[in-house]
Amino acid sequence: MTTWLDDVFAAPKPIIAMLHLSALPGDPGYDSAAGISAIVDRAKAELDALQTGGVDGVMISNEFSLPYLTQTEPITAISMARVITELLPEISVPYGVNVLWDGRASIDLAVATGAQWVREIFTGVYASDFGLWNTNIGEVARHRHRIGADGVKLLFNIVPESAAYLAERSLASITASTVFATLPDGICVSGLTAGAPTDTQSLKIVKDAAGSVPVFVNTGVKAHNAADQLAIADGAVVGTYFKEDGVFENRASVDRVRELVGAVRDFRKTL
């Protein structure tokens, strides 16, 4: 079955690498002495490692903007736009963006930088580490249309990290109603935190209920489990595994990228 993934990516079951930006202006961890140039330098080095290692796409996010906001301050997306603009001449694969945890700001950033997709929490109400977390997909969808972003694909994370859905509903029910009522372009299934394994059973439940909508495994993909995860999912988003020693805070390692990408390419030969 052909999906938009076939139009965007050069290979089936694409591997999208996370490019985690350092803490930005306004974030508690921002290094004001080093400034934006240090963020750009690190991002360029990690982008080179990811692309040299053979990933199919990259997704640029403010992963180190801890603790996260569910409605970000304008300086966050503005700073990300500055960094991404400096990266653009060196990006050679399809790319998306994610302003954590703000769907509307993510779409705005995509329009400003030419990104082809965004990933965010667009539906549901959650009890989270960041407080009570509400969404409004109807408003976001209309905003997307108003600013001419209909071509920007929306990846919905329906099992968000560090949060629990407040309604007593099954994962299959949530997936089916999300697909029917909110029109996602893709669905992401996550573990508890960045790098945490995604439960294979949960992944299969979502895939079975999602119909023709592509499903991504969003956390915890490693070289040894990539084949099992991609036997179910239509693609994978990978961040922590690509870091040196598999440590979230570290920089991307080209050797670890090549290891996982090699396992995925071996799996593709069986398709």
Rank of each mutant, 00 (worst) to 15 (best):
T123K: 00
N225M: 08
A210F: 09
N136S: 13
L166H: 00
E120T: 13
N225E: 08
T2K: 15
R146H: 08
I174F: 00
F267K: 03
R119V: 10
L87Q: 11
P67A: 12
T219N: 13
H224Q: 07
K222R: 15
S173C: 00
G35Y: 09
V8M: 15
D48C: 04
L21R: 11
T113R: 06
I174K: 05
N250R: 14
S37A: 14
I137H: 04
A236N: 13
I174R: 02
S61T: 15
A112N: 03
D108Y: 06
E139C: 00
R42C: 02
G103V: 09
P197A: 12
I15D: 05
I75V: 14
D150N: 11
A49K: 14
F248V: 10
N250P: 00
L19Y: 06
T219P: 12
A209L: 06
W117R: 04
A223L: 04
Y68F: 15
I39Y: 12
G148M: 12
T52I: 10
R268S: 02
T200R: 13
I187C: 07
Q71I: 08
M80S: 06
F156Y: 15
N250E: 11
E168L: 09
I107N: 02
R142G: 01
V221T: 15
S202D: 14
A181L: 13
G131K: 10
G53T: 07
H143N: 04
R258H: 03
I158C: 01
S173I: 02
A10D: 13
D150G: 01
M18P: 01
D255M: 02
G151S: 08
T198F: 12
S177D: 14
G138S: 02
P25K: 03
D31A: 02
T113K: 07
H143E: 05
D150H: 05
N134T: 15
T113W: 08
Q51S: 10
V217L: 07
G35I: 06
D245L: 01
V99D: 13
L47V: 03
T182H: 14
G26V: 11
T198V: 13
V55D: 05
L21H: 08
A263W: 00
V213H: 08
P12H: 08
G235R: 04
T2I: 13
A209Q: 06
H224V: 04
G191D: 03
S170K: 10
M80F: 08
F9I: 09
L100W: 00
Q116F: 01
F180N: 07
T3V: 02
A149T: 03
K207L: 02
E244T: 15
D234A: 01
Q116M: 11
L24I: 08
A233W: 09
D185S: 07
Q201W: 05
G35A: 05
R258L: 00
